[in-house]
Design a protein around this nucleic acid. Structure first.
Length: 234
DNA sequence: CCCCAGGCGTCCA
DNA sequence: TGGACGCATGGG
């Protein structure tokens, strides 16, 4: 972790900042994760509408619970924005109950569906440049940075690195980032030090979730068996 | 019984 | 501007 190689011609006098992990190592992190867990294939396309709905429902919620809600919606043919728009709030509430926060999320879902339909649907949104589209998403009530970026990456296939609590926690535990780092700072690190590839970002994010679930819980870290042990900074 | 989950908006200093 | 808090079901 300490011998970050400089690019050709670059001065080697400045000591690398503690918050900076060199390119080689984040790639190595990804390779270690892939070796340990294999490719993840997250959100393998039941279509962008379902991905977007899932991105909203999974806020602070396990995917297992989200799947129950998605199944309920699918059985009622409600995995489309126009259908959600035409369905009473109370029905949405009862269908998505397994995914938790159902009163908030049902409103957010209808709100999101309404915004998308009113703006001309996904076909219109697809034509919007990434930065602008991110702003548009963030303006929606109930869509924060992670949900917006998940939608950008997984539904619109834009090369945006998604930061979730696992990614932040893992980055801090390994001292790739300072303890007070936030979403933007973390995203900047990954963006700057990785090639902007959708498939890489997709898989990387999913792999971090695996590490988080298995080795990096809030009050329990099993660093001894963790594939990322070699990447812990002193 | 406990802790935790693929966050976000609100409130308050 | 940043840190607590409520939201809610389901799994370990």
């Amino acid at each position: 972790m300490t011998d970050c190689k400089k690019k050709d011609g670059e001065a080697n006098t400045a000591s690398p900042s503690l918050s900076k992990v060199c390119n080689n190592n984040l790639i190595a992190v990804y390779e270690s994760l892939t070796t340990a867990f294999g490719p993840q294939n997250w959100w393998p396309a039941e279509g962008p509408e379902e991905m977007i709905i899932g991105a909203l429902l999974t806020q602070n919620t396990t995917w297992n619970n989200v799947e129950k809600a998605l199944t309920n919606l699918r059985l009622k043919n409600l995995l489309s924005f126009s259908a959600i728009l035409d369905t009473p709030l109370t029905e949405i509430e009862s269908l998505i109950k397994p995914s938790g926060y159902f009163r908030q999320k049902s409103r957010r879902l209808k709100n999101l569906a309404e915004a998308i339909v009113n703006t001309g649907g996904l076909q219109t949104l697809e034509t919007i440049a990434t930065a602008k589209l991110r702003e548009w998403l963030l303006d929606l009530h109930g869509v924060g940075p992670e949900t917006a970026d998940s939608i950008l990456l997984y539904a619109f296939e834009r090369p945006i690195f998604v930061i979730d609590t696992y990614t932040l926690r893992i980055s801090k535990r390994h001292k790739w980032l300072p303890e007070n780092a936030g979403y933007i700072e973390a995203q900047k690190m990954f963006t700057q030090e990785l090639p902007a590839e959708v498939s890489l970002f997709n898989d990387f994010h999913a792999l971090f979730v695996q590490i988080g679930k298995n080795f990096c819980r809030p009050n329990q870290q099993k660093c001894n068996d963790c594939p990322l042990k070699p990447f812990l900074r002193p």
